Amino acid sequence: MGRGRMPIGRRERAKQAKRERIMTAARELFAEHGVSGVTTQQVAHRADVAIGTLYLYASTKAELLIMVQNEKFAAAIDSGLAAANAAVGQGVLEPVIALLRPVVECLREHTENGRTYLHELVFGDPAEPYRQAGLALADRLEDGITGLFTHNEYIDAADAATLARVITAIIHISTTATLYLHRSDEAVLGDIRDQIHATLAPHHRAA
């Protein structure tokens, strides 16, 4: 026999199919109505599963949102890291902005959903599996920012990690604060750029 993975059984295929239907239904409904305008019953109905079955995959509406947003967040980070790597060599700021652009666009694609997602990651139960996955993605973003800063000879590893935490806080406020909801993505990114530039000023002077 070959050493490849054993084919999955019928039951497992059925579970995967149900999970995908639930994900698709939740993704569509959240995009159409926002998280506050959707119920778990609506998701179950569109996914063509019983409400009890839906709860086997996500026990609350918040968990459904996190499931959906985690996929989008992961894709945005992948895109941002690729863009940042292409911009390495253009100074410190440009690669960081290249990394953050798709992340900001993802979080602001539907502002209510993005705000609720970040709120749930920060204030929800960190032991819940979907939140664990979301927090791991947040760590990946922070690590990516840290890595970009370490390309600068005037920023040591400890400062790079601290700066990355500061910048993730800037992103959180800039993408969730009610004051900024009316602004365009470009305006928000411009404000983030200015804040990062100011944060890096001591290192510019050292250079």
Rank of each mutant, 00 (worst) to 15 (best):
L29C: 12
F30K: 01
A31K: 09
E32H: 08
G34S: 01
S36A: 12
S36E: 09
T39D: 06
T39H: 04
Q41D: 14
Q42N: 07
A44R: 08
H45N: 15
V49S: 08
V49Y: 02
G52A: 06
G52V: 02
G52D: 06
Y55K: 03
A58I: 02
S59V: 03
S59D: 07
S59F: 03
A62Q: 13
L64M: 00
I66V: 15
V68P: 11
N70G: 02
N70E: 03
N70F: 02
N70K: 00
K72E: 13
F73N: 13
A74I: 05
A74D: 11
A76D: 07
A76Q: 12
I77A: 07
S79T: 06
G80D: 04
A83K: 13
N85I: 10
A86Y: 08
V88A: 12
Q90N: 11
G91Y: 06
E94R: 11
V96D: 03
L99P: 05
L99C: 02
L100P: 00
R101Q: 10
R101K: 14
R101C: 07
P102Y: 04
P102C: 00
P102S: 00
P102E: 00
V104N: 01
C106M: 07
C106N: 06
T111W: 15
T111D: 12
E112Q: 15
E112A: 15
E112W: 11
N113V: 08
G114I: 03
R115C: 13
L118S: 06
V122P: 12
G124V: 06
G124W: 04
D125P: 13
P126K: 00
A127N: 11
A127E: 13
A127W: 10
E128A: 12
E128F: 11
P129A: 03
P129Y: 05
P129Q: 01
A133D: 13
G134L: 03
L135W: 12
L135I: 14
L135N: 13
L135C: 14
A136Q: 09
L137A: 00
L137R: 00
A138S: 14
A138H: 12
E142Y: 15
E142N: 15
D143H: 13
G144P: 09
I145M: 12
I145R: 07
T146M: 08
T146F: 07
T146K: 10
G147I: 02
T150S: 15
H151L: 05
H151K: 07
N152A: 15
E153Y: 13
Y154C: 09
I155Q: 02
